[in-house]
Nucleic acid binder design. Structure first.
Lengths: 348, 348
DNA sequence: CTGAAAGCGCTTACAG
DNA sequence: CTGAAAGCGCTTACAG
């Protein structure tokens, strides 16, 4: 006695062939109204659910896509995955999720590409065997991961990371643009002495954000003062220390942009611990719009990353490829959005 | 011309039967060393990956389990999923993840069970069709969801939520114990006037935490003073307001336990905005150990939830059931752990 | 409108 | 040690 009922059982009970049952389930072929009703009833009576595995094998498609996330406990992952799910639901695709646990295993440093490969390939192979029709790879940090997965037979869209390969798809946010917006926002509020606390210098984001900062400055004919740029390491402590540095200088900035919210939290703390106040004496801006930014004192004005949209976009691209539509553009850059809160003072 | 190579292709190229190829792939049956080597070489040459879908159909098992998460962007989800993945990897199981997006669609209120059911059932059915061998259901908030999914043929483990059904499996953290620990910790530091800002009163957690608080008090022969208990709604603002209430009373607490970190953040802010200081005048404790707790000023001492362990445990239980082992215990309660930081003052 | 039959890519009990 | 054949639960082109 089998545990699960199958299409043959239904066919027998209804005194029809499996072909007919299949036709009514899939609303195809012409089936007499009588027969159809009888079959529907039996299906409901036995709560029959067709075996997708068998269907997939026969049809040689799975309507499923794989996701490899470098680390699900890093702040960007849940929102991106959420976007992927929203788009997948719409397209009736299912998601096979795998987690490398890269951050947990390696800390905040980027492991070298070969180490990543070692972690990623087993997951990739597992997804291939499971016949996923596409893969979304979610990076832990925007960076070049060329050749992590070489010449895949199934399409891959990289998000929150990218490759140098012209044929690879990637969707990222506009780091330079976000930083430009932040700087311009400050300039528009009358600031001209703007400090910058950068992330680690081996990071693509750091450079892009630095470019955005310089671009806004030069467009508004403001001098770029290297003294105002301090190198942090993305962590709270470095935001604190670099702010102390900035405050100890002869000429002090009237505003500080930290390249992420964690360092901005450190900056606020350093200022609060000094004789200055945020934002009246010194404004502080963050980047990322992480949860904590809304609970600092004062609440932090920061740049929100289009994470959910990135997930959606990645899924959309995969779907286009799946449908054999021509996807012309390979590299996407989505806009960030300013979140105004209470940490910036207007001098106008 | 097919795109993918299959076992038959390999068999032909090696001049053997598919049975033999299958035997070498699965290390079963006796195959001559010569033949084995020849086949291995061909497999590698063509980078052949067996089709799991076909294997699954034949073997009538999928080695995959489904996860239904009520909302992946709620703070508890990523860590639980991480734990699930860690355990799944070890057991060589794959994860089919689905997201209800409950919070995004409904806000912080608990939607009624019928609304949840409407959202959950399609995901459940999809997982059943995909032949998952078990399901882990991750709640948005600890609560009773009896009958959300009724008499499932495949085993379900509920985590971060539970049912009244004696036969259902669930794994949760010990709310009462956590709250007891927190209160006792304060008492041990010499506090006797301890304020409490609760969550919404329709919440199981709120009651369990209240019980833990009262238990610690009475065990140490301290009076329970209803004036010290204020009802919040889990949000920052309510923590702020309720703390103001507490501060305006004749007898002021020397410490405040907020039932989550968000309200604790509000409490700290309210105290900082008054003539008192944290922690010298008033200590503040949170619950949940969310990321922001480490960036408040002062850094918040709080209760860490065993999220990753919950995920692991849920996966372990499913694996036991899958292996037809007898799983005696149905309901699990995992311990929370105190995270000591800077928001508590010792009066000893 | 309905059914018989082939086949998707595997595995396995059995025969040799 | 190796292979022929059946079968997992579906779908579909074809015949009637």
């Amino acid at each position: 006695m089998r545990f699960k009922i199958n299409i043959k059982d239904i066919a027998e009970k209804a005194n029809v062939s499996t072909a007919t049952v299949s036709n009514v389930i899939n609303h195809r072929g012409r089936v007499g109204e009588e027969t159809r009703k009888k079959i529907i009833n039996i299906i409901e009576e036995f709560n029959y659910q067709p075996n997708e595995i068998a269907k997939n094998l026969k049809l040689n498609k799975t309507d499923s896509i794989g996701v490899i996330v470098e680390d699900i406990s890093v702040f960007n992952a849940p929102e991106i995955i959420k976007g992927i799910h929203a788009a997948a639901e719409e397209k009736r695709l299912s998601i096979l999720l795998t987690n490398m646990g890269l951050f947990s295993k390696n800390g905040n440093q980027f492991p070298d590409i070969s180490k990543c490969k070692e972690l990623a390939m087993p997951l990739y192979r597992q997804l291939v065997k499971s016949q996923v029709e596409g893969i979304i790879y979610i990076g832990i940090h925007p960076r070049d991961i060329t050749d992590l997965i070489s010449d895949s037979k199934i399409p891959i869209v990289y998000t929150y990371c990218y490759t140098r390969n012209k044929n690879d798809y990637s969707v990222n946010y506009d780091d330079e643009g976000g930083s430009y917006q932040l700087t311009k926002y400050l300039i528009d509020k009358g600031h001209s002495q703007i400090g910058l606390i950068s992330g680690l210098i081996n990071s693509t984001s750091t450079y892009a954000r630095l470019r955005g900062y310089q671009k806004a400055l030069s467009e508004h004919l403001l001098m770029f003062n290297p003294q105002f740029v301090k190198t942090g390491d993305w962590q709270y402590e470095s935001g604190y220390r670099m702010t102390q540095d900035l405050l100890s200088q002869e000429i002090k900035p009237t505003a500080i942009i930290a390249m992420n919210d964690l360092m901005a939290a450190g900056a606020i703390q350093a200022i609060n611990d000094s004789r200055f106040r945020v934002p009246v004496d010194i404004s502080v801006l963050g980047f990322d719009n992480r949860e904590l930014s809304g609970y600092l004192s004062p609440k932090l004005t920061t740049m929100s990353l289009p994470l959910e949209e990135m997930g959606k976009m990645a899924m959309d691209i995969l779907d286009q490829i799946r449908k054999k539509h021509n996807v012309i553009q390979k590299k996407y850059l989505l806009d960030c959005q300013l979140v105004e809160r209470d940490s910036v003072y207007s001098h106008k």
